[in-house]
């Protein structure tokens, strides 16, 4: 018999967390206006605190991408007609209220997804796979979800390294005009995509070699059980989502 020392916050069933995360990110996708999205973000932050995930840390690390968000405001203003122009040159509106609103929504939506996804990172990948498998989710799919959850922090490190390397080529990001800075950010995607593809390929080969999918049924050493408070989390997530949907659909 083994006693488990459970980490703080990781003592909820991963499936309960998954339902909560799915509710939050679905809400974020459904709504388009900043006001409901802001409310959903608050919900997401509160849930993240409830599950003791380091959501604030996760969001803070995105600071480097603030420029992309700023750029989005301009792009949205340029290509969407409507809204009051705030800044225009020769009759072309560079920054409009509508553009700002759209960009704000994109940012908020992005934040909701990051913050709620950070909740999943409080479960170990093995627990996630096991939990989903017990819910009759095909093992391959469950495995992929677990891998994706673990990939996110790696991706962040890659981005950070690439940003360091490109600056050390002698690019002073701080004194480069916005348009060129955007071009530089697009260069950063290249090493990131290459590395993710590389990792995915390695992982695929490695799991096949270990006999992944060789047998139809899996024997599991550990079983997970949904307890009362896990079901509590699930029903709270569903009820709140339906509530939010109801309220804002009527407005």
């Amino acid at each position: 018999m083994q006693t488990h020392v459970t980490e703080v916050g990781s003592d909820f069933d991963p499936r309960a967390k998954l339902v909560a995360v799915m509710c939050l990110s679905s809400l974020a996708v459904v709504f388009q206006r900043p006001l409901p999205l802001a409310l959903i973000l608050i919900l997401a932050v509160l849930s993240a605190r409830y599950f003791r995930s380091d959501a604030v840390q996760a969001a803070r690390r995105l600071r480097a991408f603030l420029w992309i968000f700023a750029a989005m405001a301009f792009v949205q203003s340029l290509f969407t007609a409507g809204g009051a122009p705030l800044l225009s040159v020769c009759g072309i509106s560079l920054l409009s209220t509508l553009g700002l609103e759209r960009a704000g929504s994109i940012v908020l939506r992005f934040l909701v997804i990051i913050v709620s996804a950070s909740i999943m990172a409080t479960s170990s990948p093995r627990e996630i796979v096991q939990g989903l498998y017990q819910w009759r989710v095909p093992y391959e799919l469950a495995f992929m979800v677990a891998v994706a959850v673990r990939f996110l922090p790696l991706l962040r490190d890659e981005a950070h390294d690439a940003l360091t390397a490109i600056q050390l080529r002698g690019l002073k990001l701080e004194s480069i005009p916005l348009r060129q800075r955007l071009q530089i950010y697009s260069y950063l995607l290249m090493p990131m995509i290459a590395s993710v593809l590389g990792k995915a390929r390695e992982l695929a080969v490695a799991v096949e070699m270990r006999g992944f999918r060789a047998y139809d049924r899996r024997t599991s050493h550990r079983t997970l059980r949904m307890r009362a408070r896990d079901w509590g989390v699930v029903s709270a997530a569903v009820l709140v989502s339906v509530g939010v949907l109801g309220v804002f659909m009527h407005m």
Binding site: D161, A162, A165, I166, Q167, L168, R169, G170, L171
Partner: peptide, 22 residues
């Protein structure tokens, strides 16, 4: 800033993949 340093000191990382961009 890293950009300023990079104009004086070149740095070759162990892993080439992370420093190719174009």
């Amino acid at each position: 800033s890293l950009g300023e340093i990079g104009q004086q000191v070149g740095y070759l990382f162990q892993e080439p993949d992370r420093q190719l961009f174009a």
